[in-house]
Amino acid sequence: MKNIDSRCPLPLRRIVDEYFAESRNKMLELGAFFDRLDRAGDAADPDEEFRVVALKRAAGVLLEPGPQRVKRMALLLSDPTEEPREYLDRKAAWGAYADTGEGI
């Protein structure tokens, strides 16, 4: 992982002033999303959903030391394979990689 050390022009206190409220909100929204999954009407296990598993794994990176947390999170949410798909399975991406290649 390249050491990216180029600075943001703002001093630390100012970065906190500017971005703390929106970051706090995003974190609480994520907590609410995980709680909502636990309350799903069919009482299904959220950890059976590959997208939720991938998101929880990526969330773990938040508390790891830097640099490049975003890159590491994005890689955890990416298809790690190298070869092209033989056939088109569907048009749209789902935001996380399913090991089965078929999705849910």
């Binding site: 994005a74 990416s78 298809d79 790690p80 991406a93 789902w94 935001g95 996380a96």
Partner: peptide, 13 residues
């Protein structure tokens, strides 16, 4: 370049 989980592999290809 592709969307979401397909971006990294797609960009390489």
């Amino acid at each position: 370049t592709p969307h979401l989980e397909d971006k990294y592999k797609g960009t390489k290809l």
